[in-house]
Design a binder for these strands. Structure first.
Length: 420
RNA sequence: GGAGAGAUGGCUGAGUGGUCGAAAGCAACGGUUUGCUAAAUCGUCGUACCCCACAAGGGUACCGCGGGUUCGAAUCCCGCUCUCUCCGCCA
């Protein structure tokens, strides 16, 4: 949700953002609604004030006296008007709030303006693409991958895109998760274990609802949603709270499986590890003072990059353009790892600043000494997702023998130098 | 899952239809004072929204959440959520 003050005072800025993000919401309608809404509020509150002052008089009158009864008669009309006004206001506010939720966040001035993903800018690249194994092969075509994963049985047990992983592969996944979490802890992120399902209010606060309903698995009996990312429960940790300024910045890291319906995804992109309905990810979330949020974004990206560097995996950083920026972000970097077998880049992390967009929805504020509460800025980034990093390791480090060399930094976690 | 109890401001806790946004205490903040690692005393001490210049000032709402009854609801009625106790079930 964007700030209503910005909406009223700088509508053109918001208009520009809507256009640049390729959104189709109608700001004029919303502004008109806002005006009407405020007039109605004023009218209703005036009636209420009258009601209140007469009530005060009535309190001192003899109950049942003629004066008292006259007042009751008189106030019946006012009560009716208040009721009507309330109902009208409630209806109006409901649609207004809905409309407000449809306004995208305003991109930061450093974000390139372009309508499509082609407008994304390669911010930097790291590593030597040619340094990958000469035996690199798409992981889903390799013997070792097919031996240590089981997609057919996953399909039987659940459905397509719900694989099993076996033996060394399962252990390698666990090694990656532990590596990520330990690195996060070393950099000041406190580890959190979170619920894997959330309620509607939480899904709304982080922006999954109302838009991306179709991307989540729903548990209708209880009104729950399976989390598409731990960003949802973790960010909502502080929902409806006022933090102390001295507590900021707060860093949290959380490992969870993530569940995504991926409705509409088909074809080449979904083979093997490239896209599954359940995948493991460590998510990093920050709650920060607004004055620091863009520095915090850079350091968040830096942390995720560091992980790939330690894993010795070539990658590039994309600065997302306005058209490829999500609804909720003001600025976003995507980290893409090089998968030498598929000869393509795979997105493994997305680091975003939301400024106060989520905080406003989630009502997360902080208070500086003696000041009014102000919304925090929230950021999050993957640090990192597991399957595609695993894919890159399986491809880039594939040996002639068919085994896979484990990155040095993972050996102590994995317990062996090769996955065989 | 069954039975019961409860939910009030940062905390504790009064308040069962009428000047209650809500007593009191604690905590916190500011001042005064006292020869002292603290006490005394005075004051301040919630959030959101509306009018207005986001000032001063005024107004409205909020006593778990949502409805209802009423001229008037923290207080009565209904639904829901959560917490606690007991029973059941269970990793």
């Amino acid at each position: 949700m964007i700030d209503t003050k910005i909406l009223r005072e700088e509508p053109d800025r918001v208009r520009e953002a809507i256009a640049n993000k390729g959104s189709d919401c109608d700001l004029d309608v919303i502004l008109a609604m806002d005006t009407e809404r405020r007039q109605l509020i004023t009218a209703v509150e005036k009636l209420r004030a009258e009601q209140k002052s007469v009530n005060a008089e009535m309190a001192s009158l003899q109950k049942g006296s003629p004066e008292f009864l006259a007042k009751v008669q008189e106030m019946r009309g006012v009560a009716g008007q208040v009721k009507e006004g309330d109902a009208a206001l409630k209806a109006l506010e409901e649609t207004w709030a809905q409309q407000m939720l449809s306004i995208p966040n305003i991109p930061h001035s450093s974000v390139p303006v372009a309508p499509t993903p082609e407008g994304n800018v390669v911010h930097s690249t790291w590593g030597d693409l040619a340094s990958a194994s000469p035996f690199a092969k798409a992981h889903y075509d390799s013997e070792i991958f097919n031996r240590l994963s089981d997609f057919p049985r996953g399909s039987k047990v659940t459905g397509a895109g719900w694989p099993f992983f076996k033996g060394g592969m399962a252990r390698l996944i666990r090694s990656l998760i532990n590596f990520y979490l330990d690195q996060a802890r070393d950099h000041g992120f406190e580890e959190l274990m979170a619920p894997l399902v959330v309620n509607e209010a939480s899904a709304r606060a982080t922006g999954q609802l109302p838009d991306k309903e179709g991307q989540m698995y729903v548990i209708p009996q209880d009104g729950f949603f399976m989390i598409p990312t731990s960003e949802v429960p973790v960010t909502n940790y502080y929902r409806d709270e006022i933090l102390e300024e001295s507590e900021l910045p707060i860093y949290r890291a959380c490992y969870t499986p993530c569940f995504r319906r991926e409705a509409g995804s088909h074809g080449k992109d979904v083979r093997g590890l490239n896209r599954t309905h359940q995948f493991d990810k460590v998510e990093l979330v920050k709650w920060v003072n607004p004055s620091d949020s863009y520095d915090e974004l850079e350091s968040l990206r830096g942390h995720s990059e560091m992980l790939l560097q330690k894993l010795e995996l070539p990658y590039r950083v994309l600065l997302m353009c306005t058209g490829d920026l999500g609804f909720t972000q003001t600025k976003k970097y995507d980290l893409e790892v090089w998968a030498a077998g598929q000869e393509r880049w795979l997105e493994v992390s997305s680091c975003s600043n939301f400024e106060a967009f989520q905080a406003r929805r989630a009502n997360i504020r902080f208070r500086a000494q003696g000041e009014k509460p102000v919304h925090v800025h929230t950021l999050n980034g993957s640090g990192l997702a597991v399957p595609r990093v695993l894919a890159a390791i399986l491809e880039n480090n594939l040996q002639e023998s068919g085994s896979v060399k484990i990155p040095d930094v993972l050996v102590s976690y994995f317990g062996q130098e090769y996955l065989t």
